[in-house]
């Protein structure tokens, strides 16, 4: 399959994301576009605001380490069984980035509000936590449906990322992309002003006309640009296609221990590569 003419390169996509943009990204097994991540670092993006849906790993850590990030709203950044995310940790400890701590379903709720075009979404829990105490943008009201008052509920404001960015198993030449069961990518696309996607493979046919693929497809009314990027989630996994590269993630953590080590890592894996076709 040849690459559709309408497709851009990952570097072209990265250059369409201005400094200061609010970008929404999925968790590490949710189809992370590491190719666009690397292209953003190549183009020296600055002051990005990250919304992790709802958590992140090497993607957020690399962007922070490369100086691309001013703010992050997240429920957690970690390298999982490999340990702490070193740049995230250091940047928060040093006050280099603004952190908005959240809890996972609150971030989904913020996107669900945006998806519906409603100003907020109520959610149980969170009350009495220091998450809530440090979120002046999250409000508490008494449940207006309750008899006799009381029953406090937290309201989460709608979050509308400027760009949803992720990696999908398939894209077709009609501008459709297929995410399968990754419904949080669908939510993210619906909630965001524009969606930018890298795809693993080109689908021969029209995903919207295939009844087996339809439910997992995001149509072009949401999608601003697509790039062809085989192994575009590497070193993370693309479920159904490849596992994450644990050896590489370990070598990343070793490199990230020092400034020089991380600079050498970026030279080797980011700056020396042009984006995929």
């Amino acid at each position: 399959m040849s690459v559709p003419e309408t497709y851009l390169s990952t570097d072209e996509i990265a250059s369409s994301i201005p400094d200061g943009a609010l970008i929404g990204v999925p968790k590490e097994d949710g189809g992370v576009s590491m190719e666009i991540t690397r292209a953003l670092i190549r183009r020296k993006a600055r002051r990005l605001r990250l919304l992790t849906v709802p958590v992140s790993s090497i993607q957020a850590d690399m962007l922070i380490g490369a100086g691309c990030v001013a703010e992050i709203e997240t429920s957690g950044v970690s390298m999982g069984e490999f340990g702490y995310a070193p740049h995230f940790r250091r940047a928060v400890e040093n006050g280099d980035i603004l952190i908005r701590d959240a809890t996972c379903p609150a971030l989904y709720a913020e996107l669900q509000a945006s998806e519906k075009g409603t100003p907020f979404m109520p959610l149980r829990g969170i009350l009495g936590s220091d998450i809530l105490a440090n979120r002046p943008d999250w409000k508490t009201i008494d449940n207006p449906m309750a008899d006799g008052g009381g029953d406090p509920v937290v309201l989460l404001p709608a979050a509308r990322p400027d760009f949803a960015i992720f990696h999908a198993p398939f894209g077709d030449r009609h501008g459709n992309v297929w995410v399968g069961a990754r419904r949080e990518c669908v939510l993210l696309a619906h909630a965001s002003a524009e969606t930018l996607v890298t795809v693993e493979e080109i689908w021969d046919g029209n995903l919207m006309e295939d009844q087996h693929m339809l439910a997992g497809t995001i149509p072009p009314i949401y999608v601003g640009a697509v790039a062809y990027a085989p192994r575009g989630a590497w070193p993370l996994s693309l479920p159904g296609s490849y596992e994450r590269d644990g050896e590489h993630l370990k070598s990343y953590l070793t490199a990230a221990k020092s400034k020089d080590g991380f600079a050498a890592y970026l030279d080797r894996y980011v700056f020396s590569k042009e984006g995929a076709a």
Binding site: V55, S75, R89, C104, N134
Partner: peptide, 18 residues
């Protein structure tokens, strides 16, 4: 928010604990 040691984050705890 200027911590001594930063952990990964709250994950789903702020909701599932309730």
């Amino acid at each position: 928010p200027e911590p001594d040691t930063r952990f990964p984050g709250s994950f789903g705890s702020g909701y599932l604990y309730f």
